[in-house]
Design a protein around this nucleic acid. Structure first.
Length: 556
RNA sequence: UGCCCGAUAGUAUAAAGGUAGUACAACGGUUUUUGGUAUCGUUUGUCUAGGUUCGAAUCCUGGUCGGGCAACCA
């Protein structure tokens, strides 16, 4: 399966393993989320990697929930995770749970006790932390470390029986209190938690730590390539030690750099905070970097897959520019979104030489990028139209080629018009623009020979369909919301959501379909929101169009 | 300052000892009934000092810088 495209470092390892006949050429990965939050775009990178590798090398991928901390885990999260993985287009080999292995993991613990490699410690968390030393000072042993195997066995089974309260005792591995690797200084394997678990209920009151469950779960599943993020590098020797001492399948772990993105926070803890403290409206708020939020916002599956493909996989810490994500969704939507006209900030335009009461129906292609236009829709036209307020300038600048006194533009799919006059109210606001149209310039049958530089969108006033539109901007004002000294909550962009309650759209939009991308011509990509009800449709702006004019204006 | 990772344009990512390439971003043309799309072009890079070699982004050594590790979280 070698092609021109270069391999990332994990693919190189896998191809090397296959060449060497390791694991009989088998490739088995897993995606192991903890069900304590919704998946985000960073998880999408991991999903694409794990499932993508299996797909590429004819292997399998398990979906395994690492549910070893019952205090934070919920079934709601399990369901959302499954939905998101499926939506991304991946199928797991098996749906598994670390909690399925609790019996087995318990017996692993017993085995280590029997080998004299684990002991029950009665110390408090503070004491344990203190005895652990620091990175530059070795830890010290306490009296419990030398307990007999028999006593450890008894105590551990009593822990399981529920004889002790939360925090009274823990089971620890007996490794090396002087190890330069802090994770090898007698790490905790089991703790007591009298809490209901989302799957095992009240069966257990002791739960294995992640470090005593993750590696073994991989091993139990005979995972060949256990792929995780960089912060687990120092844990690897511990997992290898457990696997060695337990004499179980030797899963190998490989670490890559997690995704970071400008203007984005990417930790479940902080995302949960945004949700809980009401800065956003739930995990699937379209401003969230969650898969569900992005889906609701209008991001397509393909655009996310393409993004994950483009960012690459390496070990270097990285911060991806969100503009790459935006590029990917524009690129995809440009090919699939149906073009429609919508006026967000309306200004009335009257075509003075167009007979009152007359109307015409124009035809507009759904998508000019598609061969044949991907079908078409009817667009009614009449004497009075809505146009965008910023498509008229009382005193136009030199490079402005829209409407202004004496200027001509084409109304998209209709006629060329000339601005003759405009009306202002007492405050000096323009309230109406008066134009005359050129009958010979009819779209598709233009014999006028007039060339205009600008084309603007419009909506016929008597035919307009009204809807609510929600405009989103970045959630944070700073490119690095976590930059030192700043509380990320303080740099939240207060204007990240702008609601336009009455947007005028061409009548066809009354039949907008859920899940479809629409390009409001010159205004961006939009999609129907789940808050829509009959008679009150709501659209989310997925992303604006690239806007070189806005840049020009900014430059001044 | 103990251990562990890493360092290539603004941001990412290739080049497996032999021409430093690609994408996004930025900037400038062309085309255009979307100031969109498409297309062409431009600017910007191997952290540093030594060493090995005919030849180093790549291998070795020292340094610098960035990140991680001392939760009964994952």
């Amino acid at each position: 399966m070698s092609e021109e495209r270069s391999l990332n470092f994990i693919e190189e390892i896998i191809e090397e393993d296959i060449r060497n006949g390791k694991n009989d050429g088998r490739v088995h990965t897993r995606f192991p989320p903890e069900p304590n939050g919704y998946l985000h775009i960073g998880h999408a990178k991991s999903i694409c990697l794990n499932f993508g590798l299996a797909r590429k090398y004819n292997g399998k991928t398990n979906l395994r929930f690492d549910d070893t901390n019952p205090e934070k885990e919920e079934t709601e999260y399990v369901e959302s995770i499954k939905e998101d993985v499926r939506w991304l287009g991946f199928e797991w080999e098996e749906e598994l749970y670390a909690s399925d292995y609790f019996d087995q993991i318990y017996s692993f613990a017993v085995k280590l006790i029997e080998k004299g490699l684990a002991y029950v410690d009665d110390s408090s968390p503070d004491e344990i932390a203190l005895q652990k030393g620091t990175p530059t000072e070795a830890g010290v042993a306490n009296q419990y470390r030398s307990r007999s195997i028999a006593e450890n066995l008894l105590l551990f089974s009593e822990m399981k029986e529920g004889k002790y309260k939360d925090g009274e005792r823990v089971l620890r591995a007996k490794i090396d209190l002087a190890s330069p690797n802090m994770h090898l200084r007698d790490p905790i394997m089991y703790r007591i938690r009298h809490v209901n678990h989302h799957r095992t209920g009240d069966t257990w009151c002791i739960y294995p730590m992640y470090d005593f469950a993750h590696g073994q779960s991989d091993s139990i599943e005979k995972i060949t390539h256990s792929i995780c993020t960089l912060e687990f590098i120092p844990h690897r020797p511990l997992y290898d030690w457990f696997i060695d001492e337990l004499e179980i399948f030797p899963t190998k772990q490989y670490e890559f750099a997690r995704l970071n993105m400008t203007y984005t926070v990417m930790s479940k803890r902080r995302l949960l905070q945004l949700v809980n403290e009401g800065f956003v409206n739930g995990w699937d708020d379209p401003r969230m970097p969650t898969i569900s939020g992005m889906r609701r916002r209008g991001y397509t599956r393909d655009s996310i897959l393409e993004f994950c493909d483009r960012i690459g996989v390496a070990k270097r810490e990285n911060v991806i520019d969100v503009s790459l994500l935006e590029f990917c969704v524009r690129e995809d939507l440009n090919k699939s979104a149906w073009r429609r006209m919508a006026v967000l900030d309306p200004l009335k335009l009257v075509i003075t030489n167009y007979p009152e009461g007359q109307e015409e129906i124009f035809e507009g292609e759904n998508n000019p990028e598609v061969e044949g236009g991907d079908g078409s829709r009817a667009i009614p036209f009449s004497r009075e139209l809505w146009i965008e307020r910023d498509d008229f300038m009382e005193i136009p600048s030199k490079k402005y080629f829209r409407l202004g006194p004496g200027l001509m533009v084409r109304l998209k799919s209709a006629y060329i018009i000339k601005c003759d006059d405009f009306v202002k109210d007492e405050q000096g606001n323009v309230t109406e623009v008066h134009c005359s149209y050129i009958p010979e310039s009819k779209s598709g049958h233009d014999t006028s020979a007039i060339k205009v530089k600008g084309t603007i969108h419009w909506v016929s006033i008597p035919h307009a369909s009204k809807a609510e539109v929600r405009l989103y901007d970045r959630l944070f004002n700073d490119e690095d919301p976590m930059s030192n000294g700043k509380d990320f909550l303080e740099i939240i962009n207060q204007a990240s959501l702008q609601v336009m309650p009455e947007v005028y759209m061409e009548p066809d939009m009354a039949h907008a379909e859920m899940g479809r991308g629409y390009q409001f011509i010159r205004k961006g990509y939009y999609t129907l929101d789940k808050d829509s009800v009959e008679g009150n449709l709501v659209f989310n702006r997925t992303v604006t169009l690239k806007d070189t004019w806005a840049k020009e204006v900014k430059k001044g």
